[in-house]
Structure formats: C-alpha cells, structure tokens
Computed example of a mutant assay.
Amino acid sequence: MSRYFCHDHPETLQLATRVLEARPGAVLLAENPFYPGGGGQLPDHGLLRWSDGEVEVDTFESIDGRLWTRLKQPLEIAGEVEAAVDPDFRQMMRELHTDLHILNALVFQAFDGALVTGVQMNADGTARIDFDLPDADNDRLRALEPAINDAIRQNLPVTESYIELDQAYDEKGLLRSRSVAPPPTGDGLIRVIEIAGLDRQACGGTHLTATGASRPVRILKIENKGRHNRRIRIGLDMG
C-alpha cells in the first residue's frame, strides 16, 4: 500500500482537493484525508463538499493501489471538492486504538508474550481484543484496568516511525498478531507505533499523539472464546 495522507497529516481533518476520476457513487481524490479502515478499526466518517452541495462518505475501496472513496448517493462529482473528516468519530477511533495498544502491552508483559487473535473497534465507544491465553485467570486480566488508566493519566507520548520489513520480523515483540501483520508501504516499510516507555508494535491505524488525550477506560467484560481465546471488552467513559 502507499502511505495514507492521515498518517503523515493526522491533524488535517478538512482538506481542499480535487477529483481525479469519478464514476457514479465513487471518486478518486488527488489527496484523501480519510482513514479507510483496517486492523479492526472502522473507516472514518465524513463529507465531500463542493459548490453545488455535499454528500456523506460511505466506504473506501483500494483498486490497483489507489484508494477510491465510495459515496452514500450515486452522484458523479468532478472538479474541486473539500473532504471533511468527522472529528468526533476520528477522535474516538484514535482513543480506542491507542487504549488497545496500552492493554495489549500490559497483557504482553504480564502473560508471557501472549499474541492477539482478533480486534474490533465499534462506533459506540467500545472495543474488543482477543488473546491466545489458554490458561489465563480472568480476574488477573480484569485487574489490568487501573494500569490502563494510569498509562492514560501519565500522558505518555505516542510516536510513529517506519522500518524495513525484514527488521520488523527480526525485532521480538514488534508483530503482536498471531495471524496478520500490517501491510508494508510501496517501498517495503512497516509502520511502527511507540508509546514512550510502554509499548512498541507494528500498526497501520490512527492513534493519539499522547495517551492523556483519551478518556478513562473501563474493562466491561472478559469472555472465554474457545479453549485458547480470551476476549476483553473495553469501553471509553462517555460520561
């Protein structure tokens, strides 16, 4: 994949751009600020605006390495447009994804490098993450909630970098999923997210620039999903 605009410009939520190609209900933009989804994270919500109106963004589709934006109406748009990312939804996804990294780091450290078997973030401010933990004590997992919120209160910096694909496979603990890894960029690099002093792992999603920008987190439920999997459900304190 090519590097997403939102990775290099995470704070740009409104962007003047132009339509390069169009078909009914879809456009290819010269620059696209939307995160298209992936790795358990939902795609951005938002709008395209132009001189004659606006339309909601629906989903995204990669065709021959180019990111098409699909619209919620079968319009065919041309010329200059403004792409506007929904700031509240983007913020919620950034919080959830960063908080899942915190939880992932704590489980990885406390449970002998347990790997992730699935992740899903939801539009209601909740998320779940599954771990390969056949013998885990659920009470020990539940007891991680204060440590998650302590990491949030510490306001730890969150940074990104890119490393060679071979280096990513060689660095112990960088790839945390049992079955998938973030796709490399077109020049063979893997994106790495680091929470200072706590976590460093490969990831392609959107994140906060510091943990303190997240609302407090609650562990909502822990479920046994088969003999090996433990599913931890978390939720942002939306109050």
Rank of each mutant, 00 (worst) to 15 (best):
Q201L: 02
I193H: 03
N224C: 00
G188M: 07
L189H: 13
G204T: 04
A202C: 10
T209V: 09
R215H: 15
D187K: 14
V217P: 07
I190R: 11
P216Q: 07
I195Y: 06
I193V: 15
G212L: 11
R191M: 03
G197S: 13
I190N: 01
C203T: 03
I195G: 09
R200W: 11
G204A: 11
T209Q: 13
I190M: 11
T209G: 04
A210N: 12
E194K: 08
I190G: 04
V217Y: 07
G212N: 08
I190Y: 06
R215K: 15
L198D: 05
G204F: 05
V192T: 07
R191L: 03
I193A: 01
P216N: 02
D187Y: 14
D187Q: 09
I193D: 02
I195P: 02
D199C: 02
K225C: 09
I193S: 01
I195H: 13
P216K: 02
R200D: 13
C203H: 06
P216L: 09
H207A: 03
G226T: 04
L208S: 03
G205T: 02
S214C: 14
V192Y: 10
R218N: 10
A213G: 13
V217S: 01
L198C: 07
R200C: 14
A202E: 00
P216M: 11
L220D: 15
G212E: 02
H207N: 05
R227L: 12
R218V: 00
I193C: 01
V217D: 08
K221G: 03
I222P: 08
G188I: 06
L208M: 04
A202H: 08
I222N: 01
I222G: 02
K221H: 13
H207P: 08
I190F: 08
I190A: 03
R215D: 12
I222T: 05
G212S: 04
L189S: 06
D199S: 12
K221D: 13
T209A: 12
N224A: 12
I190V: 15
D199F: 03
R227A: 12
E194Q: 13
G188Q: 09
V217Q: 11
T211W: 11
Q201R: 12
A202N: 02
G186I: 10
T211N: 08
L220R: 00
G204M: 12
G188D: 05
D187E: 14
I222Y: 08
A196S: 10
P216C: 04
G186N: 15
A210S: 14
G188T: 10
I193Q: 01
R191K: 09
R215F: 06
A213L: 15
